[in-house]
Amino acid sequence: ENVVSAPMPGKVLRVLVRVGDRVRVGQGLLVLEAMKMENEIPSPRDGVVKRILVKEGEIVDTGQPLIELG
């Protein structure tokens, strides 16, 4: 699984990683606000951040690609 998608609609509050960062399974990639709750979106696997597909403040839909892992 190379693309991390939004599990719910919401607003991207914070991106916690940068392109080139090594991440571990379960590590927070970004914080999504949904229904006034902050939800940290975890990495599904170990890898390297290849691309960040959203910006802070952006509104996303369920299933929208957020981050690509390499």
Score class of each variant (00 low, 15 high):
Arg22Asn: 08
Val23Pro: 06
Arg51Ile: 12
Val25His: 01
Val48Asn: 05
Leu13Phe: 04
Lys50Ala: 02
Val12Arg: 15
Val15Cys: 15
Val25Asp: 12
Ser5Gln: 01
Met8Pro: 14
Pro42Trp: 00
Asp46Tyr: 14
Val3Tyr: 13
Glu1Asp: 01
Leu53Lys: 12
Val19His: 09
Gly20Thr: 09
Pro9Lys: 05
Arg22Tyr: 10
Leu30Trp: 02
Ala6His: 05
Glu56Ala: 01
Glu38Ala: 11
Gly10Trp: 09
Pro7Asp: 07
Leu32Arg: 14
Pro9Ser: 07
Arg18Pro: 13
Gly47Met: 05
Arg14Asp: 06
Val12Gln: 14
Gly47Leu: 13
Arg45Phe: 07
Asp21Ile: 13
Arg45Met: 04
Lys55Arg: 04
Met37Ser: 06
Arg18Asp: 07
Arg24Met: 11
Leu13Ala: 03
Val19Met: 03
Val49Gln: 06
Val54His: 11
Glu38Pro: 08
Val23Phe: 05
Leu66Arg: 15
Pro7Arg: 00
Lys36Ser: 08
Gln64Lys: 11
Lys55His: 08
Val17Ser: 00
Asn39Trp: 01
Gly10Gln: 07
Asp46Arg: 10
Arg14Pro: 10
Leu30Cys: 15
Pro7Thr: 13
Pro42Glu: 12
Leu16Cys: 14
Arg24Cys: 13
Met35Gln: 02
Glu1Asn: 15
Arg51Cys: 13
Gln64Pro: 11
Val54Glu: 10
Glu58Ala: 12
Leu53Tyr: 04
Lys50Asp: 06
Gly70Ile: 02
Arg51Pro: 06
Lys36Tyr: 04
Leu69Met: 12
Arg24Phe: 01
Glu56Asp: 06
Pro44Gln: 06
Leu13Met: 12
Leu32Ser: 09
Arg14Tyr: 08
Val4Glu: 01
Asp61Gly: 00
Val31Thr: 05
Ile59Val: 00
Ser43Ala: 03
Asp21Glu: 08
Leu32Asn: 07
Gln64Glu: 09
Arg22Pro: 05
Lys36Asn: 12
Val4Ala: 05
Gly63Met: 09
Asn39Ile: 10
Leu69Ile: 12
Val48Met: 10
Pro7Leu: 03
Met37Arg: 09
Arg24Gln: 12
Lys50Ser: 07
Arg45Lys: 02
Gly20Asn: 12
Gln64Gly: 02
Arg24Ser: 01
Ile41Lys: 06
Val48Trp: 09
Arg14Asn: 04
Glu33Lys: 04
Leu16Gln: 09
Ser43Gly: 00
Glu40Pro: 04
Val12Leu: 03
Arg51Ala: 03
Lys50Trp: 02
Lys36Met: 00
Ser43Asp: 12
Gly63Cys: 14
Val31Gln: 12
Leu69Lys: 14
Gln64Thr: 02
Glu56Leu: 12
Leu30Ile: 04
Pro65Met: 11
Pro42Asn: 12
Ala34His: 06
Val54Cys: 14
Ile67Lys: 15
Arg18Ala: 07
Met8Phe: 13
Leu66Gln: 09
Val60Lys: 03
Glu33Asn: 04
Asp46His: 07
Val17Asn: 06
Val12Glu: 15
Leu53Cys: 15
Arg45Glu: 12
Val54Gly: 10
Gly20Asp: 00
Ser5Thr: 00
Val17Gly: 09
Gly47Ser: 02
Arg45Pro: 07
Ala6Phe: 01
Glu1Ala: 15
Lys11Asn: 10
Met35His: 11
Leu53Thr: 08
Lys50Ile: 02
Ile59Ala: 06
Leu16Met: 12
Gly28Pro: 02
Ile52Pro: 05
Val12Met: 04
Pro42His: 09
Gln27Met: 13
Gly10Ala: 07
Leu30Ala: 09
Thr62Val: 06
Glu68Trp: 13
Ile67Asn: 04
Arg14Ser: 01
Gly47Lys: 14
Asp61Leu: 11
Ala6Asp: 05
Lys55Pro: 03
Met8Tyr: 12
Pro9Glu: 08
Asp21Thr: 12
Glu58Met: 12
Pro7Cys: 14
Ile52Glu: 04
Arg18Ser: 09
Val54Leu: 00
Gly70Glu: 11
Pro65Leu: 12
Leu16Thr: 12
Val12His: 08
Asn39Ala: 12
Lys11Asp: 06
Glu38Met: 09
Met8Gly: 10
Ile52Phe: 02
Glu40Ser: 07
Gly63Ser: 12
